[in-house]
């Protein structure tokens, strides 16, 4: 008790001074014969060393009340604990394997069931909305005639040419834009502008300039993907930490070596991500390109089937387009995961 009396008088004028020490006064009354002199700041401390329960309670109140400016507020309201939710609805929480498989199965089966239901409701008009079974049969028909294979090969070849060319141009350009401020300053404005011009709007021009055969279709694919892929590649390259570049110079690497041995390996997974996204766009554009003046290809098959009112064939081709797209996506994702094994 005496230690505290000597050691720690509260500074006069502190927020928890005698004027505001309400709970304290009650504790004082309980444990002291005479009330403390008003304006004696040390009196507050005197009683805190008392060994009665009342004094202990007061000590808690004093510490809560005199802490840095907290005295002015009513106690913070506390919210009810949140309702417990099943794990499936918890943010970023792994879910049990059976749940995952069930959800994956549903995501395919529900649309398929809706398709079946709708085609039944529309009352068996295969020229309007064929059922999945009818589409399947039409697909088998197409495959038997060898048309499906020929069309698929034609479309894939155009994608490989057009998108391949776009990758060949956009990856080096993107690396230059990502690695050099000058490259960014020189190319980003114009590419940022060009990418907003819809590629399909170029179809008439391309037909005029390049004719209506392969060239114009390849060019459409190229135009539709090259700008996006450049900008996304540049973004991936720019994500390299500065310290990684700096430390390479201190290990004796020259500029070209830093680019080749550090910048490019570091951005490769990101570049593959960009390619995967834009491959989907390329696969879209090839069908658009084939809607006009083609002799084979999946898009051409759709137009032709429409002309002969073979709606079931259109659906068969749509399913094939979707499946090939999915295959490309999975293949690129596997490649990316292999190349980017080092990313956590």
């Amino acid at each position: 008790m005496s230690v505290l009396t000597e050691g720690g008088p509260e500074p006069a004028g502190s927020p928890g001074g005698p004027g505001t020490a309400g709970p304290l006064a009650a504790a004082d009354a309980a444990s002291r014969e005479s009330p403390p002199a008003a304006g004696d700041p040390s009196a507050a401390h005197l009683d805190l060393t008392g060994d009665t329960a009342a004094a202990d309670g007061a000590a808690v109140a004093v510490h809560a009340g005199t802490g840095a400016g907290a005295a002015a507020f009513a106690p913070l309201p506390r919210r009810q604990p949140p309702r417990r939710v099943p794990r499936v609805f918890a943010i970023r929480t792994p879910i049990p394997r059976p749940s995952r498989l069930a959800l994956t199965a549903l995501s395919v089966l529900v649309p398929l069931a809706l398709w079946q239901l709708l085609s039944t409701v529309i009352d068996g008009r295969p020229d309007y909305l064929p059922s999945p079974a009818q589409a399947w049969a039409a697909g088998l028909d197409l495959a038997r005639d060898g048309l499906l294979l020929g069309d698929t090969v034609a479309s894939i070849r155009r994608v490989l040419l057009g998108f391949g060319l776009a990758v060949a141009v956009s990856v080096p350009l993107g690396i230059a834009m990502g690695a050099f401020q000058a490259g960014r300053a020189a190319f980003e404005p114009v590419i940022g502008l060009l990418r907003y011009l819809p590629a399909s709007a170029f179809i008439p021009l391309l037909a005029l300039w390049l004719g209506i055969d392969e060239m114009s279709k390849v060019a459409l694919l190229f135009l539709g993907t090259v700008f996006f892929n450049t900008l996304m590649t540049a973004d991936a390259v720019r994500r390299i930490p500065g310290a990684l570049v700096d430390v390479s110079y201190t290990l004796g690497a020259r500029r070209g070596e830093v680019l080749r041995k550090v910048v490019i390996p570091h951005s490769l997974p990101g570049i593959l991500d960009a390619i995967r996204v834009n491959a989907a766009a390329a696969w879209n554009f090839v069908v658009v390109a084939e809607l006009f003046a083609a002799e084979e290809g999946l898009g051409y098959r759709i137009v032709r089937s429409q002309r002969f009112n073979q709606i079931d064939r259109i659906f068969a081709v749509l399913v094939v387009i979707a499946l090939i797209g999915l295959t490309i996506d999975i293949a690129l994702r596997l490649l990316r995961d292999r190349v980017g094994r080092w990313t956590s």
């Binding site: 310290a243 700096d246 430390v247 390996p265 570091h266 990313t343």
Partner: peptide, 11 residues
């Protein structure tokens, strides 16, 4: 030079 973050090549 050794940086705080190490700057090791993650690949």
């Amino acid at each position: 030079m050794v940086f705080q973050t190490g700057a090791v090549y993650p690949w």
